[in-house]
């Protein structure tokens, strides 16, 4: 008897459509769809994809708990032994959806789940403790590498085989600690590591320190009437024609745009460069992403002193964390130099 697998994919991999279809509700189809074909080959005779669940990325992201619960109900009828999700590579909403669903699968159905994501996918940080996420490259070009790794791990889990370390098995660390015997005492091992470090030789720590990159909140704005408010966005708003050629995904730069004398971001002058959401609404009226019109009104009413005459914009779509950090630091130094008090940062 072969194991019964359900595969989760988004609207894009199901061939339903891109961002314009990202709000489609979940559905379940019998058999394989899209990348399920590749998994079918990798799983061989041991397991069969009996059904595929498809859901739009924005639909899922907008109602995560409700959608997970809905999909779990759909799955029950097919009596699955395990679930495969994605791979989602570096697609944030897709990765988050895979994570939320797999967490629910493990909890509610009590069966194993395996996903595949690039380490910077936000779904990793959110759900890595809940299920096995195989580390993949950042784009679908890595499909051929991701599929066999995910299928192999899933089969091991189904057969109850002993798993090696995350590095050996290719999945992202879940923070699970296991006891293990060494030939050498801890004291000897630590001295070995220390001497290796002194010599500049490679060594592997047995307990990596968690990295909490948190920033303490800044004090609140005391006197709003005297404040200069600036707008920053990862939603890609820019002048029509995208003069700085900000990339639709994996942005390598941000833009600085003057809005002196502009009361409203109209469609003849502003649009979005973002390739990760349906641009229809932002292109029609960019105030839907960057609320310049309302801020101008409030500036006139004296709610605050001034709307900063420049806004900063990039595309937060598969953009590397390192790039975002660089943009943030550079934008901050310009805002501070210009005497800005506080920032409204909008994300799509």
């Amino acid at each position: 008897m072969s194991y019964r697998i359900i595969h989760y994919i988004n609207q894009f991999y199901a061939g339903i459509g891109g961002e314009e279809k990202a709000d489609v509700a979940p559905e379940i189809r019998e058999g394989v769809v899209g990348p399920g074909m590749a998994f079918k080959g990798a799983l061989g005779a041991d397991a069969e994809i009996v059904a595929t669940v498809i859901c739009g990325d924005s639909y899922f992201a907008s109602n995560m708990e409700k959608t997970s619960a809905e999909i779990i109900e759909m799955m029950k009828k097919y009596k699955p032994d395990a679930v495969i999700a994605g791979p989602a590579f570096n697609a944030g909403r897709y990765g988050t959806a895979c994570g939320a669903l797999c967490e629910a699968v493990v909890k509610e159905l009590g069966i194993p789940a395996v996903g595949g994501m690039y380490p910077e996918n936000p779904g990793v940080e959110m759900y890595k403790k809940s299920f096995y996420i195989v580390e993949t490259p950042d784009s679908a070009a890595g499909m051929r590498k991701a599929v066999p790794a995910m299928a192999g791990l899933l089969l091991k889990l189904l057969k109850g085989e002993k798993l090696g370390t995350p590095a050996e098995e290719g999945y992202i660390e879940r923070g699970v600690r296991k006891n293990k015997f060494y030939d050498k005492l801890a004291a000897e091992r630590v001295v070995d590591m220390f001497t290796a470090k002194l010599k500049g030789e490679p060594f592997v720590t047995e307990y990596p320190m968690p990295q909490f990159d948190r920033v303490d909140p800044q004090p609140a704005v005391k006197n709003m009437k005297n404040a200069v408010i600036a707008l920053v966005t990862s939603g890609g708003i820019c002048p029509v024609g995208n003069p700085d050629h900000i990339e639709a995904s994996s942005a390598s730069k941000f833009g600085e745009y003057d809005i002196t004398g502009i009361d409203d971001l109209t469609c003849d002058a502003f649009c979005t460069a973002h390739g990760g959401y349906d641009a229809t609404y932002a292109d029609e009226d960019s105030d839907r992403v960057l609320p310049v019109d309302v801020l101008r009104e409030m500036e006139r009413e004296g709610v605050f002193k001034k709307l900063h005459n420049k806004f900063y914009s990039t595309v937060g779509n598969g953009t590397a964390v390192a790039s975002s950090k660089r943009f943030g630091a550079e934008i901050a130094s310009r805002l501070i130099a210009d005497g800005v008090t506080a920032v409204i940062l909008t994300s799509t």
Partner: peptide, 25 residues
């Protein structure tokens, strides 16, 4: 970006739809 701007010394409010991602970041 939110964090780097706040780190540099400005209070930031993040207005976004997927709150869990904002919390994680």
């Amino acid at each position: 970006m939110v964090k780097e701007i706040e780190r540099a010394g400005l209070p930031v409010v993040h207005v976004c739809t997927i709150v869990p991602i904002s919390l994680t970041v």
